[in-house]
Design a protein around this nucleic acid. Structure first.
Lengths: 157, 157
DNA sequence: CCTAAAACCAACCGCCTCGCTAGGATTTCT
DNA sequence: AGAAATCCTAGCGAGGCGGTTGGTTTTAGG
């Protein structure tokens, strides 16, 4: 399993918020309570609380406290890349323990004994690129539209 | 972490076997003992035993028992896709718990309540495609060459 | 003002996998 | 015979996963 249910539940939560922002810009839509989301997606409420906290800390959703409160998307769904969502939920995406991306896009490996490079770096770099490209290239708006729209046609790429 | 050390150690094991098949076709090269691999890669021997067992069961390496025994690649390194290696070590690659690929390339999701499709299927399908494409498109021969060759130039794609 | 609904927060807990070790049994070359 | 190697089974500590429990605080509505 590449990702845990944190990513799965969290993404479904975000899609649910996106669906209920019907047309209106996020900040003028009425907030959606976690109770409603939990019921609609059939997920445990108290567990969702943990997940939404991470999304809020990452600046992806905003909250309204008190009665009739809830959560809203922090910006338009088309401006939310799924890479940010998944990273907020799962932490930094590295294919391996020894894999670290530096600020200049350089890739480090803790096994590199000075002269010769870690043999597997090439592989993990490609894998990392593949998954981040897929995540970064998908917006929340796409998922919302997909969930509402055509059930049959699934466009892979 | 997308993959555990099983994949990391196992891939390094395979690369080590590939490096020591210098030029010769696999079946006429002398087998390499796990002790030698463990020492070269600085990995725990007894743990490698578990990993190599999976590689053998998957038909990726062959073994020679007894003194001066060891392991060989089952076929030429250029014929070994890293997808098979990683799958042998980590099990089937699914982005999520609810994600299952059927025989015809169809994708199933256990959450699909008949009419409307699981909202997140589009995302996980893309992620799955990204990682499998990266793994399937990389051969062991590439990694062996990379580990011996040019340290500076890293061709991502 | 009171109450209900909601976001928040902290702690806990059973289960499972990971990473690894232990202790053998078996096979084969020297 | 002995050593070197593969092979096999069992166990084990640590940590994350997938929640649950039990609150506290904020706020709208009656």
């Amino acid at each position: 399993m590449l990702f845990s249910t944190k990513a799965e539940y969290g993404v479904r939560l975000m899609v649910e918020l996106g669906r209920r922002t019907d047309g209106a810009s996020p900040e003028e839509s009425t907030p959606v309570s976690l109770t409603a989301v939990a019921e609609a997606e059939n997920l445990p409420l108290s567990y969702l609380e943990h997940l939404v906290a991470k999304l809020r800390q990452a600046g992806l959703v905003t909250s309204v406290r008190g009665a009739h409160g809830g959560y809203r998307l922090a910006r338009d769904a088309s401006e939310i890349a799924m890479l940010d969502v998944v990273q907020a939920l799962e932490g930094p995406i590295a294919p391996m323990e020894c894999f670290h991306t530096e600020r200049e896009g350089r890739v480090l490996c803790s096994h590199e004994v000075d002269p010769d490079p870690c043999a597997t770096k090439l592989l993990w770099t490609r894998v990392h690129g593949g998954v981040t490209k897929a995540l970064a290239g998908t917006t929340l708006a796409e998922l919302v539209k997909f969930s509402e729209g055509q059930p049959a046609t699934l466009t892979i790429a």
